[in-house]
Amino acid sequence: MNENKIYLKVAQDMYLSQFFWTISFLGILLFISIVRLLLGLQGDKAEGFFNSVFVASNIYMFIIGILAVYFLSYFVGNGVTRKDYFLGATIASVGLSITIPIITIIVYFIEKIIFNLIGIQYKVQTINEIELDGNIIGDTIQMMILSPYVDPNENWLLATLVLCSNIFITYLLGWFISCSFYSYDVIIGLIAIIMVIFLKMIKDTLLRIAIDLPAIGWFNSLDVLPISVAIACILFVILIILAVIRHTTKRVSVKL
């Protein structure tokens, strides 16, 4: 076996494992959407599959990001280096973050044709209209759950790209938290959670700037940044998270 290519095997294995979880996740969401439609629970206006996935996939990716650290002992146990695990897991997470939006947008297009045929309209989404009232816990939770949104009816390509970037970073944040708990102790893990809240808010602010929405929240002073700088800053945030994950797992002791 060429040891230089082991990370590609890791990427393939992790991608396939997570892909099968994802198929179940998207299948359940689709089933719920269909049942709600058939039962007429949504009236003549429906949420739509894309919008359901948009909200739920953030939480889903955060959870499977947390689970990503548990692949480490499996791979090291099979003679794979921590570096190959890191590279493989990163590639798999990119693959998954592209796969989910592609499946979602394809289902959305099919759904749109059906909605047109049976005369159902999409509900107007208010995801971007976050109202912060100064309650630190309420504001934090709102900003953690909701990410900048683009309506696929207006720009399906941009909507897909924004969904990609939202879920990719959410996955990385989950992975970052679990690596911190795995590699260090509870105190460092809790510090990582606080860092994740800040990173998510910074990334959302930058993404809002990049898609020309008004910046809100603790980092709204970044509003002065041009779009290109905001995009570069998002990439920089991604690199920082990846660098920290690599640092925490580089020489970590694998638990028996």
């Binding site: 040891e3 090291v76 146990g77 003679g79 794979v80 280096t81 921590r82 570096k83 190959d84 020489r251």
Partner: peptide, 12 residues
């Protein structure tokens, strides 16, 4: 440690 060539040769 972190040596792909050697780690592959050791089963634990």
């Amino acid at each position: 440690f972190e040596n792909a060539k050697v780690m592959q040769q050791i089963a634990f």
